[in-house]
Amino acid sequence: MNQTSSEAIKELLYKMADDLLIIGHRNSEWTGLGPILEEDISFSSMAQDKIGQAQALYQLLNDLGEQEPDTVAFTRNANQFHNAQLVELPNGEYDFSLVRHFLYDHADQLRFEALANSSYEPLAKVARKVKGELKYHVFHANTWMVKLGSANEESHNRMQAAFNEAWNYALGMFEKSSFEDQLIAEGVFEGEETLQEKWLANITPYLIKAGIEIPASTSWNPVFGGRIGNHTANLSPLVEEMSEVFRFDPTAEW
């Protein structure tokens, strides 16, 4: 692997790992607070998968010369994170969390499916394992999206409002990297544009079933910046909380 591809792959790994860590953290905030016990448990189990997946990707970064997964995850500042802004937004009510989960997990599943065939074999190997775990996440999201989108007037209105709120942030997940062309040319990753097209095709049938409308494309205004470290004010407190104990003594064994 030449120098440039290594940088390109690192950037790809960082944004994926950071997405997973932050959404996993948000999912875990539902522990003890879910609308029904069964959903507490679902969000917790998804959170564990996400955080485990993040750890696996940070390990790949470590293999490429970056610091240990714990150091990378628990000592950086918010502006060093490459996650999309979508995942750092507060959980809000269950409607918003569920809509975000739906939009994010469909994209994530397609991303890992594509990466299962990546020319970068270590990533392809992880992706083949992760995409199996994601099946359940997407199934969970689809079920709830359809259920709550169509159950009654209140649930429908809530889901539509949450969807409108999340939409431009969701489009921001597909912010292109400066290494985009190279990653595509080298067969590492199919690229954000292709991913977004597939994503739209995948979510649409469920949205139709749920009776949820996608805003008119003329009004789309993707929220970019997360990939280069620009974040909303929500990320900094999250990162501080996450690293509060670890930073007490970063050299200690916890």
Partner: peptide, 26 residues
């Protein structure tokens, strides 16, 4: 303390533990 657990190992284990407790309630 789930959101503050120091390091991946502890964070994952504590999430699993508390999830079990909610499962016990169920």
């Amino acid at each position: 303390w789930i959101t503050r657990a120091p390091g991946f190992k502890r964070k994952l284990a504590l999430m699993a533990k508390v999830q079990d407790e909610v499962g016990h309630a169920q």
